[in-house]
Design a protein around this nucleic acid. Structure first.
Ligand code: SF4
Ligand code: SF4
Lengths: 146, 146
DNA sequence: TCTGAATAAGATATGAATTATCTTTATTAT
DNA sequence: ATAATAAAGATAATTCATATCTTATTCAGA
C-alpha cells in the first residue's frame, strides 16, 4: 500500500528543483542535501527521471538536471509511475494475465474502481503546487486551514 | 502501492464464507480450494482474522471458522488493516516520528489528503457486497453496466 | 593537449518484507 | 483411541526496496 522511499525522494527532489529559478541546472548533491536524502540513491532516482524524459541530464563538470516538462504538468501520479511503475492496488488492475481468477473473480471490479479513484487523486496534485510558499499552498489545497 | 497477496486471499476467503448459509462452520481446506489459494497460507491468514475478532475459530474435528461480525459490517478497509496493518501511502501519514521532515515538509499534507480519499473508497465496499450473484453486484456497484 | 575534478550513468550489494511451507501441539467428535 | 481439525511457531524461498560502489563522461585549467 505504501509508495516507495524512492518516489518520496523523487517528488521532494523535483519540488526542490521547481523552487529554483527556471532553467537552473541542479546537482544531485544539492538536491539530496536539501531533501535530506542519500545522494547516491537520489542519483539513481534522477537517472530514472531523466530516462523518462521529464528532466534533462547533463554529464560532466557543471552537469546536472533541468526540467524538460513544466512542473505544472508533472503530476504526482506521473512521478510515481516513473519510479515505482504502474499504479495499482492489486495485480489484476492492469495485467489480465497476472491472475487466472480474472473472469470468475467476484472482487476484481472493485479494484478497478478504487484504482480509478486513487489515480484521480494522485493526478490532482502537481510538482508546481508545492514549489510556492507553504502557507499559501495549504490554503489553496485545503480550501480553509485553521 | 499494492495490497499484499495475503489481503487479496483474505478478502476472497471471507467472500466465500459469506456465500455459505449463515452460521456455517467453514474449513480452511475448503476456503483455500474455492479461492485457488495455498491452504497453508490461508490457514495463517485466518489465524490473524480470528485474533482480530471478526471471525470465530473452533478447533478439533468439525472445527473451523464462522463470522463473528456480520459480513455487511466488514469493510475492505477493515480486512486490509487486519492483514497488512494501517493503511498509509507514505510513512508520515500515521506516525509523526516516522519521518523527521514532518513540520518542514512541503508535501506531507498531500499524503494525508490522498490517504483519506483512499480509506473512504476502501470503506465503501463490504464483504457482503460480493456474496450475492455477480451480475447483480456489478449492477449495484457500478450503477449501469453494459 | 594533458590532467584532474566534478558530474551522471551503470553495476552490484545489502537488507527487509513478502510469501509461503513445514512441523509440532492442542482440541474435539466419534 | 483415532481421526480431523485449527493454533502456533520455526524456517525457507523469493522478491523487492534501499542503498552503495565503480565506471564513464564532460569540462576547466595548467
Ligand atoms: S481481485 Fe480477483 S482478479 Fe484481482 S488479483 Fe485478486 S483474485 Fe485475481
Ligand atoms: S512526505 Fe514529507 S513528511 Fe511524509 S515521509 Fe515524505 S518527507 Fe516525510
Amino acid at each position: 500500500m505504501n509508495i516507495s522511499r524512492a518516489s518520496d525522494y523523487a517528488i521532494r527532489g523535483l519540488v526542490y528543483m521547481a523552487k529554483q529559478p527556471a532553467g537552473t541546472v541542479c546537482f544531485v548533491k544539492d538536491i539530496a542535501k536539501n531533501t535530506n536524502s542519500p545522494a547516491s540513491f537520489m542519483s539513481k532516482i534522477f537517472q530514472t527521471l531523466a530516462k523518462s524524459g521529464i528532466v534533462n541530464s547533463f554529464t560532466g563538470t557543471k552537469g546536472g538536471f533541468t526540467f524538460n516538462t513544466q512542473p505544472e504538468n508533472i503530476t504526482i501520479k506521473t512521478v510515481i509511475e516513473i519510479i515505482d511503475g504502474p499504479i495499482l492496488l492489486n495485480r489484476c488492475a492492469v495485467n489480465k494475465s497476472a491472475c487466472n481468477e480474472i473472469g470468475i473473480c467476484d472482487v476484481h471490479y472493485m479494484w478497478t474502481d478504487i484504482r480509478k479513484i486513487l489515480i484521480n487523486a494522485l493526478n490532482s496534485y502537481s510538482i508546481a503546487d508545492f514549489a510556492t510558499d507553504k502557507k499559501n499552498k495549504m490554503e489553496v489545497l485545503s480550501g480553509v486551514m485553521q
